[in-house]
């Protein structure tokens, strides 16, 4: 796959999505989507609202249960397993363990309002992984420092701006040392002048080699940071490839129409 750093021994892709389908009642939102993401790659999902890109992201960590298809993260199937040739649902604790290795950042931040920024970051490592508190606190403070919020550790979410909240949310997800980070329109709820500070953190993260899938409307970010772009419409992948090519020279009429709105 393009974008994988050369000179690194070939590793299996971190994320494999196979023929993913999702129906809500009679509506088919995803109609057979397949793609792979290699370690260290940044994949940007773009497309009009209702095209299924958020649903796709939520299926990857089983916040939505796919109607059909399979998802593998680091070689392990998510949410289901094959048993005697039949696919059976995983136990809740198993699914929770799998999710702990997949970080997710939401459009509306979803910070825990009753906990301070530091406590938000510490919550899952302490209560899910049961790591020693002192160790977690040190790591959490480092992460907050990395997202530029070392001085806001003891603030509650409502005392922070949207951009600051989203950066805490990123630190919170990173505290679980995920193999893969999912971003569901992380800047769509932010004021335009604040978007940059969140994108900057994501850019740093990509630079550190984090594998990321980003649903976004920030075309500049997709072009500069993305290794690959997938354009979705009507529940299918219309077009995918290197950002520079897809964004500058789209092959499909539908992609052209969509991108025309951003220039």
């Amino acid at each position: 796959m393009s974008g994988a750093p050369s000179g690194v021994a070939a590793r299996p892709p971190i994320l494999v999505v196979e023929d993913l389908r999702k129906c809500f009642g009679p509506n088919e939102v995803l109609s057979g989507v397949s793609f792979e993401v290699d370690a260290g790659q940044v994949l940007c999902l773009i497309g009009p609202s209702g095209s299924g890109k958020s649903t796709l992201l939520r299926c990857v960590n089983f916040l939505e249960e796919p109607t059909a298809g399979r998802i593998f993260v680091d070689g392990e199937q998510i949410g289901r397993r094959e048993e005697n040739g039949r696919s059976v649902e995983l136990r809740a604790t198993e699914l929770a363990r799998q999710r702990s290795a997949i970080g997710m950042v939401f459009q509306s931040f979803n910070l825990f309002p009753h906990l301070t920024a530091l406590e938000n970051v510490m919550e899952a490592p302490v209560h899910v992984k049961r790591e020693p508190r002192a160790e977690v606190e040190e790591r959490a403070r480092r992460l907050l420092d990395r997202v530029g919020l070392a001085d806001r550790a003891d603030y509650y979410p409502m005392q922070l701006s949207g951009g600051q909240q989203q950066r805490v949310a990123i630190a919170r997800a990173l505290a679980m040392r995920p193999k893969l980070m999912l971003f569901d329109e992380p800047t769509s709820a932010l004021d335009p002048e604040i978007v940059g500070e969140v994108l900057e953190v994501m850019r740093l993260l990509a630079g550190d080699g984090m594998t990321m899938v980003v649903v976004t409307h920030e075309m500049a970010f997709a072009r500069e940071v993305g290794d690959r772009v997938i354009f979705m419409d009507g529940g299918v992948i219309v077009e995918s490839g290197e950002p520079a090519r897809v964004l500058r020279d789209p092959q499909h009429e539908r992609t052209r129409q969509f991108l025309a709105r951003f220039s």
């Binding site: 929770a96 290795a101 970080g103 997710m104 899952a124 209560h127 899910v128 997800a173």
Partner: peptide, 9 residues
Amino acid sequence: EAAQSLGMT
């Protein structure tokens, strides 16, 4: 959802 995405049951 946020709690579940962090691996909480």
